[in-house]
Design a protein around this nucleic acid. Sequence first.
DNA 1: AATGAATGAGGTTTCATTCAT
DNA 2: AATGAATGAAACCTCATTCAT
Lengths: 215, 215, 215, 215
Amino acid sequence: MSDKPPRPRGRREAMAEERREAVLEAALAEFIASGFAATRIEDVARRADVAKGTIYLHFKDKEALFAAAVRAEMAPLAASLAALLEDDAAQPKATLEAVLEALLQRLTQTRTGDVIRLIMSETLRFPEVTRFYRDEIVLPMMGRISALLQRARAAGELRTPETADFPQLVIAPFLLVALTRGFDLEAVTGSADDLLRVHLANIFRGTPDPRTSSE
Amino acid sequence: MSDKPPRPRGRREAMAEERREAVLEAALAEFIASGFAATRIEDVARRADVAKGTIYLHFKDKEALFAAAVRAEMAPLAASLAALLEDDAAQPKATLEAVLEALLQRLTQTRTGDVIRLIMSETLRFPEVTRFYRDEIVLPMMGRISALLQRARAAGELRTPETADFPQLVIAPFLLVALTRGFDLEAVTGSADDLLRVHLANIFRGTPDPRTSSE
Amino acid sequence: MSDKPPRPRGRREAMAEERREAVLEAALAEFIASGFAATRIEDVARRADVAKGTIYLHFKDKEALFAAAVRAEMAPLAASLAALLEDDAAQPKATLEAVLEALLQRLTQTRTGDVIRLIMSETLRFPEVTRFYRDEIVLPMMGRISALLQRARAAGELRTPETADFPQLVIAPFLLVALTRGFDLEAVTGSADDLLRVHLANIFRGTPDPRTSSE
Amino acid sequence: MSDKPPRPRGRREAMAEERREAVLEAALAEFIASGFAATRIEDVARRADVAKGTIYLHFKDKEALFAAAVRAEMAPLAASLAALLEDDAAQPKATLEAVLEALLQRLTQTRTGDVIRLIMSETLRFPEVTRFYRDEIVLPMMGRISALLQRARAAGELRTPETADFPQLVIAPFLLVALTRGFDLEAVTGSADDLLRVHLANIFRGTPDPRTSSE
DNA sequence: AATGAATGAGGTTTCATTCAT
DNA sequence: AATGAATGAAACCTCATTCAT
């Protein structure tokens, strides 16, 4: 999203590249909407305003298209995670809050949440994509959070020190948010923002109560 | 299929019922293994040791078979939830612990976790199944936990009182356990049992630290 | 042609077998008429009065259909060759005449000639079929003729004794007959029957002149 | 494609002609290797180091390309046949031997044999090419050989006078050599050279025995 | 009630050909 | 003249569903 390959030289190639991206865009939308099997190449072509054959100029087959579409959407997330991994200086609690807030935003306001759900849906057919997601996104993310938690534990900031051994516990609610799209759960509970605050309060000592600081 | 006993009355119906169940059993296994689209009726038939046509004697079409298979597996869970909903007398914290422990066992030791994952995978194609799952399982579960949490809050047992408004927070880690089957996450973290204990310690006041009982 | 598998039991299977044969029959006709690539499965289906899918009940794919069709047609020839290989008693010249006459009849009056041409046409795409043809038909045939020629040489019946080392020389004109179907060569030369007689006269000593018995 | 000289006039046409020939060359190689249907225009283009579209500047369509490629290869043969047709003076037997020897060389040492096989393979799809081959090559060749045989008959040189009516008999072994490329027949018989000598000995009176002149 | 052969709609993929650059 | 991205018709093959036995 930030760094595209430096614009291919020549009009022809530029247009081809644009089309390739239009196809990826259309493919992702269709896959999200219908899943892998129910998405027809023709649907993707129509949405990208391109002929069926054109898709095969850029992608070997439907599976390759799927993998490419998912990757294209997830790569920025992987990149921004990598960026976060660099500034280890900040204080753990504040950093973790920032990270989780950013993640929540991504999940609720972009297609990232849908893509995560898509990946988990098609895990069986695409072990390779799943592996990419696990290795490039999940494990780094968990590693990052693990490190932060350990520093928080050292600083005595964790309510339960052993939380540092289970980074999943910290991420779990966000996964759930991504996966229950369309479940209308918010109708019966509070907002996603409040959920984040309560969650942090459970994990970190001295986090002020979400709404009332004194009780 | 091979040995037909001289069909006394009553036997016929019993056998038909047996076959129906064999088909459901086989269907569930195949759907879990391959997903809806990639499962072929013929595979189900072979696994159930039944002819293809027989399946259509019991189920209108592939979608009906899917719905029935999922329902059959989830019904006991719904029932046991209903049972839990009755004995409201017990003390909230202990009850919640018992419920979550039971849930964790179901998720890790039976096919229930796989089925939940299957449902979430096929949500797009089966809004009806998803609705069943949401209405019969998820919402009652969340309601039950909500009630427990509210009593816990009244008893001052919650670390963060607002947790009572977000029952998802309590369930989230379990969903995650179900959905990340095959992700090998346990390889990089602690065990599911410890995860449960740490999770409870974060939520409930006075829960002894998972390993060290003195604080 | 002579020994079919002993009629499958049951009406259903019998009809299925009939259809399988109808498909083979239709396939061979279409392949002969259009070659492998230009023959459409749908054409075969229509000619066999069968649905497209039915063909795939019996044959894995188009290539398997081709191989089966060719084999079915050539198997009888292979069998009759095997039969000829048994009665080694007869005198070489007369036997060879009989063999070649039979071969010529097959080539001109049945589809065998067309099939041989078909095989040679599709040699590139079907090394396996070609191998079958080579191993089951060509080499045995050549071996048989070789043996006959050697006995003829021993009896001093060959005009050129070394002919015994080149059984191809004896067969070549027949191959040519098969392969030049549609070339209208007979329009500019004599008949196939006379060709055979002249050919034999060239090879065997003492064969009477084709037309004039006195020299 | 890579180095364009500053295009002086006359050069353009020369280069165009060069490309045309490169395309023909590449096309023939691909057609021989894969047959008509399985050869892709893109393969030809790549082999000729030319863009796909360029081919269509020179040839109307794939069929025209095929016809042109075959013609280009066979034209020299037709021409040399025409040359042979002129010097009718020579003595028949020696001439025929020379002709056949030349033909055998062409068939075994150039691509001519492959092209003949290609033509016969695609006879069904290309009656026009086949007609060209028949009219420009086969019939003249047979006419020439016929004439020679008749003079040989008049000179009493034929073992069987009627051979003169069947020029195919004389050519047949050579066709067979061309068509059985890849059959490994030589592995089980003698060499092509010896085959020629034996063949001639069968046809011509007084041809010395292939290896031993006295017996 | 059970079977499994038959059907044919539907989807993926290929590739000859075109045409804007 | 040359390019090669784009097109879309055409063909293979799959598989849910039906129905005669």
